[in-house]
Design a protein around this nucleic acid. Structure first.
Lengths: 357, 357
DNA sequence: TTGTAAGCGTTATCAT
DNA sequence: ATGATAACGCTTACAA
């Protein structure tokens, strides 16, 4: 059975029932029972168990002037990426006795600051943030007051935050090399705006640098900005790309996130291009849903992806924050999570008959 | 600019600065400034604004013995359904000044009860629950202590909870009628286990009843249990179905959730059946992602779905709970949200040339 | 080994 | 119209 639901039992009740002062009970609760008579200890234990007493977090927090609340700021909660992140953060923090409070910032810097304020007044012990902006003085201000902050897959300029990100260079290098091996002569980028999104920007840079290394030229000209608002649809950009192709060019498009990649997939399909023969497509898979719903394996052809371990991202950043909260920090550092490469049909011109998972 | 980040200012500081007692300041904060001199009121206002003072939630909660915390229990946070739900609940509650605390129950009744306990001790003001079980005496116990609870798309037997669900009868009736019109002679159900999932059970019943009405027979025999664990894969069940078909039967499969439907899609594809000609497929779309990532429109053929307004579910149940918290309740009631029917290629045998969005 | 008492930042009950 | 003062449930010097 569970707690006595009738009336909230307090430390006073326990003390009275046992016949000791509440100081003694408090000591017991907090594990300072070393210098306590075995008899007292046992009786307190018994009564606490019987009554199913649990100390009030609220009173505790008031006294200790700290809470076990963690503010978690998510740039845009409505993405598949975020939902995986949220689950993993939530699972780990509650394992450790912390309570995550999630705040959806809707990609608005202003909303983000409001949330920070509100969470601060609520007394959160630290922040886990997948922030909206690259230049976030407000967050820097909070950090420099000594409030523990860990960044999830985001950079902020001019300040050394603890940070957990995905490894970019190696996987994108491998991907680009694969594209070359498959005979694609023109690797290009389709990306949403990277202005205020540090991880998008880093990804773009990593890809350009991989192309530089593998193909030996600067592909900056082949970065296509995709947007879902102002006419820069994937379809429009695909048209633009096709128009700029030289004779003999075989293009391969790298999307910088799953939405862009999916939109590009649709565009390629509807203009009748043969994939992977005439054009290749690939992108990161920021979306570790149950295998049962994996779009990249559902559609035809299946899509080559770089596998971002979003669950790990959540867990590791939460772990890192918990370390900081316990004062076990050793200076700002960056954790880079290794990413896998899932080669699938959409980029395999040569062995189209191959064995794809 | 934002709050003074230097030191937490308390009601005492304000009182001292203004030169009044903290009682007066407290009155001001809580809007009991009716019988207060204009002068005092104004001076308090000014100092509060200057210092950016905000009363401590913790102290407040301790004193008032209630909090603005809402426990939100989610059966399985890792589903697309849940992630949409979480966002909408979060958005609405924080609009109203409440703080949602999400708990992932991992489909475990035990975990759910632990979470309830922990949240109760933490002092949550109420619960929003998408619970695991149909028979949840523990939850009933909590409810009968007067703690406000609203159920999201879930039923619990033997107790009248406030509840928000999806309308089932009309949309499934329309769907089944559509199947008949398209010439499918054998509507069948593919569903995961409904034992402990009240909404799955209700959906199954609604579909069977629709078949009864439209086709005039009881299709209980054509309910196929799909599982991702013990050999009852969608592929295996599809085999079973095909084996039981009579000459001339044209089957249409109705999945009870998106995962089942997607798995069935894969199975149909890999056994080479022509869809929609030889077999139909449809299911609910419990997954209102950005339109950009909608699987049902991404794959070929596109899939006919019943559109469950998950965002509305979250918002309405949160609204309902807030009403209860404010004491504006008028007895237990059920809100049924209307669902749309998206007819797409996968069930259109007759007008396969038709215009599908 | 245990207890007393002060205080965390509020609100609420009396007074004045 | 405003102020003392006592809680709320807990922790922590300091005492004993």
């Amino acid at each position: 059975m569970h707690m006595n639901l009738e009336s909230k039992v307090t430390i006073n009740d326990i003390a009275k029932a046992v016949g000791v002062s509440k100081t003694t009970v408090s000591r017991y609760i907090n594990g300072h029972s070393d210098m306590m008579s075995e008899r007292t200890r046992e009786r307190i234990r018994a009564v606490i168990e019987m009554t199913n007493y649990q100390p009030s977090d609220i009173a505790r927090n008031l006294k200790r002037k700290n809470t076990n609340l963690i503010g978690v700021l998510i740039a845009d909660m409505s993405t598949p990426f975020s939902s995986v992140l949220v689950v993993s953060i939530s699972d780990y923090l509650s394992e450790c006795g912390y309570v995550p409070i999630f705040a959806n910032c809707n990609d608005s810097l202003q909303k983000e600051q409001e949330m920070i304020d509100s969470l601060l007044f609520r007394g959160v012990a630290g922040f886990l943030v997948n922030t909206t902006s690259c230049n976030n003085n407000y967050l820097i201000g909070v950090a420099s007051r000594g409030i523990p902050i860990v960044l999830c897959d985001r950079y902020i300029n001019h300040y050394n935050f603890n940070i957990v990100t995905f490894e970019q260079d190696a996987p994108f290098f491998n991907l680009v090399r694969h594209l070359k091996e498959e005979g694609y002569t023109r690797p290009v980028l389709f990306t949403q705006c990277w202005e205020n999104n540090s991880s998008r920007r880093r990804r773009k840079d990593a890809i350009l640098s991989a192309i530089q290394q593998v193909y030996g030229y600067d592909a900056t000209e082949d970065v296509y900005l995709v947007s879902f608002q102002n006419g820069l649809s994937a379809a429009a950009q695909l048209d633009a790309l096709l128009g700029r192709l030289k004779p003999g060019d075989i293009p391969a498009i790298i999307g910088t996130n799953s939405v862009t990649t999916v939109q590009t997939y649709k565009a390629i399909k509807s203009c009748g291009l043969k994939m992977p023969e005439q054009i290749g497509l690939c992108g990161p898979e920021d979306w570790n849903w149950q295998q049962e719903m994996n779009w990249a394996q559902l559609i035809e052809p299946t899509i080559t992806t770089i596998d971002l371990p979003v669950r790990d991202l959540g867990r590791q950043s939460a772990e890192c924050l918990v370390h900081m909260l316990k004062g076990e920090t050793e200076g700002a550092r960056e954790i880079m999570l290794p990413c896998g490469l899932n080669i699938r049909e959409s980029t395999c011109r040569l062995h189209s008959q191959g064995d794809f998972g």
